[in-house]
Design a protein around this nucleic acid. Structure first.
Lengths: 196, 196
DNA sequence: GTCTATATTATGATAGAC
DNA sequence: GTCTATCATAATATAGAC
């Protein structure tokens, strides 16, 4: 390695561009420029070209992002309050990034769902991992595994949908609404279980 | 008009491709081919090129789709049950379309959010219209306008997020979970208002 | 209004000197 | 491993015959 990790810079630039503009709109020339790397290095480190670069991003940034979101979920003792705080943190981050950087794989996931089987499968696996991890977290307050998994899946969906609406409107309100709705959903699930 | 509405065929083909593959991945050559229209006709009817074609799609298919979804929400007297049925209908439609045709503007909305101000604003206006219309519907069962609007926004977000996960996994389960969660959210909101 | 041909630029990808 | 030049192709867009 001559430069301080050319490969990492390429990965970083690709991840940023895929996240902001999606798969199709991201050109490899632009990736090389943004990474301050010669174009040839891109194919040296990623012989599979654009698809390999995207799959690498999905399988690296995806799990990382999942861990980051899950880590936000223990900010306070009350889980419902934690949900509100986590979505508020996401809202603040999104606004600070000028509504550019939301979910690293969401845009790509929709783009490739019907056109690239390799990348579709990669995004599906990441979503599945997120739901599994979140279901474990909800399991700490909801005894029924099916109920915990339903909450987990709902949280991921609400987050993705909230990112879409917040980015489109350039307004954090959808994300804040999503957090309050998830808190209400958790509270009512816990209360309902207590009745049995 | 010589052929039975060349313009409409171009609109239809563009809408289908934008919906399935997004904005960047949709080529105008392919649009013309799919529409069985000569390439020149495309620029004859849409001098603004790709962007005009996309904006037209967003402002036409967007409101149409909103009305279609809202119309599903009165299938049965109980509103919570209606929500479950509406999401189930969306799930069945998506599976029948081989997970290709979900929300007509969702993919485009994420793609253009940080790169095309005209199209971003168009998607934002459509989402706003949807939330307004849904808030009116929820208002029939929830007296507080803020609560009704919160439910409406949550429903749209949950639907968009569910489309993303269902398309990625090629599985209708996320959409069905979303419907049940929205039903629970409505029920708890109605119950909570009754306590006051 | 219809349709073909083409201009121009960008894309993903490769070859090969160093 | 680095970097440049270039390939082949496809993109958006336009010109102009009919």
């Amino acid at each position: 390695m001559g430069q301080p990790d050319t490969r990492a810079r390429i990965q970083g630039a690709a991840g940023m561009l895929f996240r902001r503009h999606g798969y199709s709109a991201t050109g490899l020339k632009r990736v090389a420029t943004e990474a301050e790397a010669p174009f040839g290095s891109l194919y040296h480190f990623f012989p599979g070209g654009k698809q390999q670069l995207a799959e690498d991003m999905i399988r690296t940034s995806g799990p990382e992002y999942g861990r980051m979101v899950l880590a936000l979920l223990d900010s306070v003792p009350d889980p419902a309050e934690s949900l509100v705080h986590a979505f508020e943190a996401a809202a603040n981050d999104l606004a600070a990034a000028d509504y550019a950087d939301a979910c690293p794989i969401g845009t790509v996931a929709l783009e490739v769902a019907s056109s690239n089987e390799v990348l579709r499968a990669a995004t599906a696996e990441v979503f599945e991992e997120w739901v599994d991890a979140a279901a474990q977290w909800f399991g700490r307050w909801v005894a029924d595994p099916k109920a915990a998994r339903s909450l987990a899946c709902s949280m991921i969906m609400m987050l993705e949908g909230a990112f879409m609406l917040s980015r489109a409107a350039r307004d954090t309100e959808p994300l804040r609404v999503a957090g309050r709705s998830m808190a209400a959903l958790l509270r009512t699930t816990v209360a309902q279980a207590g009745e049995d």
